[in-house]
Design a protein around this nucleic acid. Sequence first.
DNA 1: AAACAATATTTGCATTTGCAAATTAATGTC
DNA 2: GACATTAATTTGCAAATGCAAATATTGTTT
Lengths: 158, 158
Amino acid sequence: MYRLTNSLPYLLNRVGVRMGELFSRRIARYEITLPMYRVMAALWQQGDQRLGDLAAMTSLELSTASRLIGALKRKGLVSRKRLEDNARTVAINLTTKGKLLVEELIPIAIHFEEVAIRSLPKDGLANLKSVLAQIYTDLGTIEPEIAEAETRQGKARR
Amino acid sequence: MYRLTNSLPYLLNRVGVRMGELFSRRIARYEITLPMYRVMAALWQQGDQRLGDLAAMTSLELSTASRLIGALKRKGLVSRKRLEDNARTVAINLTTKGKLLVEELIPIAIHFEEVAIRSLPKDGLANLKSVLAQIYTDLGTIEPEIAEAETRQGKARR
DNA sequence: AAACAATATTTGCATTTGCAAATTAATGTC
DNA sequence: GACATTAATTTGCAAATGCAAATATTGTTT
């Protein structure tokens, strides 16, 4: 018999929501939201990104990312320049101020992770991460099945 | 050196978002959103719930849950009655129509889970689930630390 | 029993989100 | 080289979300 509370999506979501909530509260005093942090940490890892890549990297919707970058720019934390050679793309970077801030936040994120996995066995974390990565790619294989179902009924009815 | 893309919150969020997106698309033709499904599946597992319990069970914010129940009620999928003995609480249940619908959706959710874990070893799923549950509880231990940080600076400044 | 505190839910309002359309720029084609 | 096509980003608008305040009911105190 199926139980929602024992299903994988449920357990994943629950952890994600709680983690997000706690971390958000923790960084609220820096006037930074969780998606903002993700964007900044992504840029810290890899600068000079285009909007689309940044959105993909952070699992953000494109328009959400666009506006988020706008907000971060207004705060002076990132820069957004049209490229000279290809002016339809945009190169996004952390400013010095943004870099300083994210380097203050990253240790907090690391601490969170430490607390979260506190009682896992030695190799538990590495294993968990590889499992999550594996599931992510496996999920891709269900895409066609969904697209098929959509065209078969969904879109047609509109 | 820290990499966002190798951090646990990142990997969790990424899987959660993708899973949610795909499942949402899959059930869109039933005119049901993912949070709606979660509420209905929660009620299927355990009926006669109060709003607060349902919100906790589904990781939804209270006001979001309240409005969601309203929408489901308008669709004739759930009932919401004030109790006679304690009229400040409310008892939420699936209607027959709601029960029928959720019983159509649950197999889809099960299929999703199967695809997601397709390439995990035998005991991989059970292990993953217990790890996720463990992390969820461990996260609770960071709460006081955050509350402390909030009162120390955050709230004071307002 | 009146006043007050506590509990459960709902609602107002501002912010965020997501889709689709619009915009802007670059590229391919004839 | 003008003209449609594709690519990348932004914006308009409606719906969803989250916090705080409002509402309704029960429990407690004196």
